[in-house]
Structures are given as structure tokens and as C-alpha cells.
Amino acid sequence: MKDPLVSLRGVALTLHSNAGPVEILRGIDLDVPAGETLGLVGPSGSGKSTLLMVMAGLEAVTAGTVEVDGTALKDLNEDALARFRGDAIGIVFQSFHLIPTMTALENVALPLELAGARDAQEKAALELDQVGLSHRLDHYPGQLSGGEQQRVAIARALVTGARLVLADEPTGNLDQETGTKIVDLLFSLHAARGMTLVLVTHDRDLAGRCSRVAHLADGRIASIASGQPSAAIATAS
């Protein structure tokens, strides 16, 4: 096994609400080697998205350690985490989360601009070309189809040269045909660039394309299937 890009040890997360504490993650141990594609599956409320947030440094764990690309996230404060994300991590959301008042080009250039890059627009244009949207540079999200919006979101996640891409149900808001195209794009970019890809999905076919699939239930990893994702999903069901 290659050196893990993501390493979780005994990760637990408890949130406190008015109704009392809620245990969302309970003792997760997981290594994701560099360049791997990992699918996270499980029923709603099992902790998939939370696990993704923990990997992105968006949620601080209550117990355990999280290391990404050799950096222990618990040693970073909120702003250092944001800078680390801008440098190393790209995120693709189910609802795309493009900024509605910015064009496709501006949306993709945004992480580079936040990082202070001088050639942000040029790099963003190249990235949009890679996802097949060179003709939509000046279009606003409202003027793009759902599939196009998700392609912009993928370009935005990859434009900084992220070593870890986290995708939260990237096809959840798309029809099957468009979803398939997006998945094809995501995996072809992975093949070309070799970044680590972790995605949360309910889609068996999508999970089936990952090299490993982790099944979560009740805040724990119930099983990890290697190369046999369909079987894992079947077991969980």
C-alpha cells in the first residue's frame, strides 16, 4: 500500500444541540492512500458527509487524529485550515455551490485569487477548457445547466492542483445521463492527474467505479470492500 494521503485514527465527533449531545462519528480508523479513489456509502445520518467534512478540516473532531498530506489538522486553527484547504483540498458539492453573482471563469478563478495568484484567470480558463466549457466562460451559474454547473464546480475544485478531492454526492442533483457524464469526467481527470478522490454517494454504479468502498453505519465504518464495491453495498443493504 502507498503512503496514506489521509489518515484517520480513532476519530469521534459529538455535536451538542438543545436536545442533548449527538454522537455522529464513533472511533473511525481509516487510511486513504495517495491516488486512490474511495467511495463512502451508507444510509442517511450514518456520518458520510461528516466524515468528508472532517477530512476537509471543516469540522473539528472531538477525539482522535486526522492527518492529510502529512499535516495534523488538529494543530491548525480555523484560518490555517482554510489556507490548507485552498492549497491542498478541492471540494465538489451536491448543490454545486457556485457563487451566483460570478461568471464560470470567475468562480473557477476564485480559489486562485484567494491564494493571491496573479494568473488566476488564465489558469481558470485552461481548467474550464479541460472540462469542456471553454465556450461558457462568461456565463453566470443561472445561465448554465445543472451538468454544466457541476463541471464548473469540478474545475474549481481542481484548479489549484489539489492533492485531495472530496466530492459530496456529486451526481445527487443531476439526472442519470448527466450524472454519468460528470462521473466520467471526474474519473478521467483522476486518471490524468492522479489526485486522491473521496466521494460520498448513494449511487451504486458510481461507488462501483471506486477502487475501495467504505460502508458507514451509525457513525462507524461497518465494512471496507476493495474492488468489490457492489458486494459491499449489497451486504450493507
Partner: peptide
Amino acid sequence: IATIATLKCLGATGPA
């Protein structure tokens, strides 16, 4: 809020 959260996910710090 969604825009700010998106910016945070893309690497924007609190001061930014």
C-alpha cells in the same frame, strides 16, 4: 451565508 461558506471551503480565511 452559502457564499461565505463556499469561500471558506475554497480556502478563504476569516480575515479574508
